[in-house]
């Protein structure tokens, strides 16, 4: 419980500061666009957090997001119907996770190394697949996909099918649904117990008869599949995606969200609620600096310092609660 107090406090402060920073900042349409970004980052945060809970790390998330976004566009360009392209892309993500997981469990390679290599490989794949892709260029080649793409965008992003106005935070809703699922498995089923046990002490889990390798692989598959889904969302939300920088360094945002949300990088700690809260921090902060009109040069400093102070405070609260326990 104390693990999420800090991030909860941070969010309260950020939202309060945001809403008081500008009369328009607290209006629903701004909060909806913030929520939408939170949803997108939240989905990769779920994956990263699960991997962290089982004591691993996935640095390939951002590259998989980018690669998936580009793949999604390329598939449609090649004449694959958008409704069919979505599952194909997610399957691609699952395959990536299977590869990562197998290398880590079978060959006993370090997760850091495997996924760092994955980061380069999948960024490269994205470049090989294509340069800059957007909905407009896909529709130009395949006018018949206009309606399906607009429908997907309406359902998954919450943008108006006619003029692209954001009307409801579909990505956030999607995040809540997925977080609910993750929470159910993590907190209510035997699998969740295995993940916590593996993350804290792989031997303890093994001696209890848990198939550690299989559980690890499953987690990497889930993580990469979520990253692929996020790639689809990015393609549907962004004007265009570029193979070079789509999803670039998002793995760090995801890991940041997970850690802010109470996951320990040592493994074995973390809650579904915490993951969602952790992922909500950065988008609010970004909206805040946009509304405050900070100069470009100070923005990275503001973001970095705020996160650092948040982390320090969080740690202080935790230490306090430990002493008083």
């Amino acid at each position: 419980m104390t693990r999420i107090l800090g991030v909860l406090g941070l969010l309260v402060v950020l939202y309060t500061t945001l809403i008081t920073s500008h009369p328009k900042a607290g209006e629903p349409d701004n909060l909806i666009s913030v929520a939408n970004l939170q949803g997108r980052f939240g989905i990769i945060t779920l994956g990263a957090a699960l991997v962290i809970i089982v004591g691993g790390i996935d640095l390939s998330i951002g590259a998989v997001v980018g690669c998936s976004a580009v793949l999604f566009g390329v598939l449609m360009n090649k004449g694959v119907h958008p409704f069919a392209a979505v599952p194909i892309v997610i399957l691609f993500g699952a395959t990536v996770g299977l590869t990562n997981g197998s290398l880590i469990t079978r060959l006993k390679l370090q997760p850091f190394l495997v996924t760092l290599c994955g980061m380069f490989v999948f960024r490269g794949f994205a470049r090989l697949l294509g340069g800059t892709l957007g909905q407009a260029s896909v529709i130009e080649g395949h006018p018949e996909y206009k309606d399906p793409i607009r429908t997907l965008r309406h359902l998954l992003i919450g943008k108006d099918p006619i003029d692209g106005e954001l009307i409801f935070p579909a990505q956030f809703i999607l995040l809540i649904v997925l977080a609910g699922l993750v929470g159910f498995f993590l907190h209510r089923t035997a699998y969740g117990r295995y993940w916590y046990a593996i993350g804290h002490s792989e031997l303890a889990a093994k001696y209890a008869g848990v198939n550690v390798s299989r559980q690890r692989v499953v987690i990497y598959v889930v993580c990469s599949a979520l990253a692929a889904l996020t790639g689809v969302l990015l393609f549907l939300d962004a004007p265009s995606v570029q193979s070079d920088n789509a999803g670039f360094s998002w793995e760090l945002y995801a890991i940041l969200g997970a850690v802010l949300g109470g996951c320990s990088l040592r493994g074995g700690e973390g809650t579904a609620v915490g993951m969602v809260l952790g992922a909500m921090v950065l988008p609010v902060l970004e909206s805040l600096v946009n509304f405050r009109g900070d100069a470009s040069d100070v923005i990275p400093v503001v973001i970095g310092l705020t996160l650092l102070i948040g982390a320090i405070v969080d740690e202080l609260i935790r230490q306090r609660s430990r002493i008083h326990r």
């Binding site: 117990r193 046990a197 804290h200 002490s201 031997l203 303890a204 209890a208 700690e269």
Partner: peptide, 8 residues
């Protein structure tokens, strides 16, 4: 050596 998952 104890083989419990101490975080649980």
């Amino acid at each position: 050596e104890l083989n419990l998952a101490e975080n649980l």
